[in-house]
Nucleic acid binder design. Structure first.
Lengths: 338, 338
DNA sequence: TTGAAAGCGCTAACAC
DNA sequence: GTGTTAGCGCTTTCAA
């Protein structure tokens, strides 16, 4: 790759002048500008961003730390964020944690030493100590999808999302409802709370606890646990399941049908994330939707505002978007025939 | 962020010595090493990778250019590559093209000016002129998943993949088979060829041409075209479909069933990529598998060998892996009852 | 309008 | 063993 120095030599000007031309800056005579430009094209010159970064202290690089790209929801997030970043002249360094705290820690260190201008992160867990280093650093960071203390964040209220699922099922006449996912998730808390607000209590015996999140890899775990549950309770003690991810709901639906339960007639199913799976599976899946595009756009926007100094608030800014329920075929007022 | 200079001052040594400690290099006395290390920890010092890159001419950065991350197959690729890169001390700059040539061109320019040590690319099309700049540059590049002239590549033989699908269907007794996808794909060519080798001819009237690839966004297009096809030909003139992606096959299957065709009894379906969809959908989907993990691993390995100079061959190296067929419930010997 | 020079944070000779 | 020095390719004063 050619350097400014080489262009300068060819064009018979100083390297500083080439720099001026490149940056479209200041005062350069039309004459020299065109002369220089000509050599830039001839030698197919492109500025060395590394050198630019070193002196300008701006890398135009964001780091994005995702837990599980196999989950269609997160690949959607990545796609949106890349688009938005690209539109603003930024590139993305992609780090994958697999929901592993150690890797997250490593990713953060790496990104910082790479001088990224900002970090977008879906944190593995809120309490991890290495997040403090991040908090104390002055690298603008926004937590997406999952909210965390001390960080700017753009997310939906997972509680409300969980509550929506519960309300929908309760309102369609279900009272014995199962939950499939992690009990530590906010989704579950909202779900649980909703029962109380209806003057009901959610029975802990209806929980099928899953270790991992929404990646396809959980298939095996789900198969085992659901099958065990179904065989243990025959007849089934619930008329509906709320599953914490669409992928999970997709898999659960199949297992249910293999056990001769019809959806939604015998068992209703609600998923989460409203991915393409919810739209394309049959029966189509009622799912709590997170506005991904909105989240990605706002997150990048917020980062940008922090970077440019437009936004200077000391305390962290929380943008909480509303989830919304996409009602589809997998749920129906109880007792109804089609 | 602290700099070497600051550490040096605190520790009362020269900045070069700090550098030596950091790089674990050469000869530094235990004493000074420990002294320096102590300050490194105290100030939470991490070397500035940008500065390191500038002088060492190594960024430890790979660029990866993907057409459609929403396709589970490509998110799988990304995941594997990230893992493999990370294991070797590399980070990934992720670029998304959406199968758009302009964006691909832009991505390549950006990556080059960012001094990436190598590029992994799933090219949009083989003939794009901007690929020449890449070819002529000395940035090690490997085409993955899709092979392209003049580039190192790691891929399966899509031809053979297509042929496998055809052979499987022909051998299970189908002769009237439909193809859903792009006719320009190698998959189709292999598929077509296989007919000839069986002394048969594939009828062009059985093609449902799709514009785009395997992203969920094609849903609408598929719905329209398939529905039109099914309504036009009643009774149906084929007993099987080969669909160029799993996502496509997933959607097609549902449409078929909505038109009261049973799978595999009335219509057999074969997909491509063997993603989790193939495993989790019902009936499970026979699909041509590409060994993703292998592709990712080998691609990174090859890049590494080019970078370190272990591999110096002038002409491009092609690693063509074998696809393999995962036979599942969506296909069955014709005329058989379960 | 342009050039010379300093310096971003680091590595890598080269001396002592 | 350790310090000094010269860059890496750029941006940005400061003079001219």
């Amino acid at each position: 790759m050619a350097t400014m120095e080489e262009i300068a030599k060819k064009a018979g000007v100083s390297q500083a002048t080439v720099s001026r031309v490149i940056n479209g800056s200041a005062s350069v005579s039309m004459e020299t500008r065109q002369n220089v430009m000509q050599w830039i094209r001839k030698l197919d010159y492109h500025p060395n961003r590394t050198a630019q970064s070193l002196v300008s202290k701006q890398s135009y690089l964001f780091g994005i730390i995702l837990p599980e790209i196999s989950n269609p929801y997160f690949s959607e997030v990545l796609k949106v964020v890349e688009q938005e970043a690209s539109l603003n002249g930024y590139n993305l360094i992609f780090c994958h944690t697999g929901d592993n705290v150690q890797r997250e820690k490593h990713a953060i260190t790496t990104l910082r030493s790479r001088q990224v201008d900002g970090i977008l992160i879906v944190p593995v867990e809120s309490s991890a100590p290495h997040l403090n280093t991040l908090r104390n650093s002055n690298v603008p960071t926004v937590a997406i999808t999952r909210d965390i203390d001390g960080f700017d964040s753009v997310a939906i209220s997972l509680r409300r999302g969980g509550a929506m699922a519960a309300n929908h099922l309760l309102e369609t006449g279900h009272t014995n409802i199962g939950y499939i996912g992690s009990k530590h998730e906010e989704k579950f808390q909202g779900f649980y709370q909703a029962f109380l607000e209806h003057g009901l209590t959610f029975s802990d015996t209806h929980v099928i606890e899953l270790e991992k999140g929404g990646e396809p890899g959980i298939s095996h775990e789900i198969h085992e646990k659901i099958s065990a549950y179904l065989e243990e309770r025959n007849p089934l003690d619930v008329t509906a399941f709320f599953v914490s991810t669409d992928i999970g709901a997709f898999i659960v639906s199949h297992i249910l049908r293999e056990h001769d339960y019809r959806i939604p007639e015998d068992v209703a199913v609600v998923g989460f994330d409203n991915t393409f799976l919810a739209v394309e599976m049959r029966p189509t899946l009622t799912s709590v939707a997170q506005p991904v595009a909105e989240i990605g756009r706002l997150a990048v926007e917020m980062l940008l505002e922090r970077i440019t100094g437009q936004e200077t608030r000391e305390d962290s800014i929380k943008i909480i978007l509303e989830p919304y329920l996409m009602v589809r075929e997998s749920t129906r007022k109880i007792g109804w025939k089609s």
